[in-house]
Simulated scan of single mutants.
Amino acid sequence: MATVNPPTIDRIFAEAPVMAILRGMPLDRSVELATLAWDLGIECVEVPVQSRTAAEVLAAVVKAGAERGRPVGAGTVTTPQRLAWAVSAGAAFTVAPGFDAGVARASLDAGLPHLPGVATATEVQAARALGLDWLKAFPAGVLGPDWFRAMRGPFPEVPFVATGGIDASNAAAFLAAGAKVVAVGSALEDPDQLRRLADLLKH
């Protein structure tokens, strides 16, 4: 069943401009890293659901988050099946690498805020027309900080989450360029990344 009164994307990202993406990690390690992130003040965690096993990891992280009042999102939600896994696991929101109006509507109908991936002005407009406020810029590492500066001209009201190719060494540059949130995934294989990213919250 869908999350009851799920938090809005605004509320999810209100506390910190960093999101940890726990992709392809074992269940115990995912819970461990999520807990470390929360301890360091990184409120938002996403677990991609690219397989049934990953959906089980999501459910475990959701359970750990519930004990601390922390929302956990389901990432790479690109199909109805993955959306069903997200709903079943109790995810608070869904994330996708691209913009698919059908998936976005289905997620909203399930009561879950949706964060679609965009890389062009056309995709930004299409997502906004569907009523999606927050958008994920992907792959941010390829788009570069200048993409965010350029998008601030026509879309100054759009909050973007920079995702893909972000780590502690370049996160501040994307935030300075206009990204509201930076999402860090594969870089978290380095255990020191979360602590370095948490330092961003102090500035």
Rank of each mutant, 00 (worst) to 15 (best):
A187E: 14
V61A: 08
G90W: 04
N170R: 14
A16H: 08
V95H: 04
A162M: 05
T120D: 03
I166R: 13
G111D: 10
P156Q: 09
V181L: 14
T120M: 10
G41S: 12
V77G: 01
P139F: 07
A20W: 06
E123F: 06
L33A: 03
A150F: 03
R82K: 14
A177S: 14
D28K: 03
T79M: 01
V103H: 00
E56N: 12
A140C: 05
R196Y: 07
V158E: 03
R68T: 11
T122H: 03
K202E: 08
L188P: 13
W85F: 13
A126H: 05
V49L: 01
A162L: 08
V158L: 11
A66N: 14
A179R: 02
A198G: 01
S107E: 05
D199F: 00
A168N: 06
N5M: 13
P116E: 07
D39A: 10
E56I: 03
D190S: 10
R195Q: 06
L135C: 09
A172C: 03
D39G: 08
F160I: 12
F99Y: 15
G41Y: 09
P139I: 06
T53I: 08
F160Q: 11
A172V: 07
L22G: 03
D146K: 08
Q81F: 05
A106I: 05
V95M: 10
A37T: 12
V103S: 00
M1G: 15
A66K: 09
E32T: 09
A121F: 00
R152C: 04
F99S: 04
F93A: 11
V103Q: 00
S51K: 09
I9F: 13
E67K: 13
A16T: 15
R149T: 15
L135W: 11
A162V: 05
D192T: 14
G144R: 10
F138M: 10
W134S: 09
W85E: 09
W147C: 11
P97S: 03
A173N: 14
L143H: 09
R195S: 04
L201G: 00
V57I: 12
Q50R: 10
R52I: 08
R128G: 11
V142A: 15
A127R: 00
R52C: 02
G178W: 07
R152N: 06
E46Y: 13
A176P: 06
A127D: 00
A119C: 12
K63L: 12
I166Y: 11
F138C: 04
A55I: 12
T8H: 13
P156H: 04
A64V: 06
P154D: 06
A34K: 01
A150L: 07
G75A: 11
A106P: 11
R29M: 02
S51D: 12
R152D: 09
L175F: 10
A177P: 15
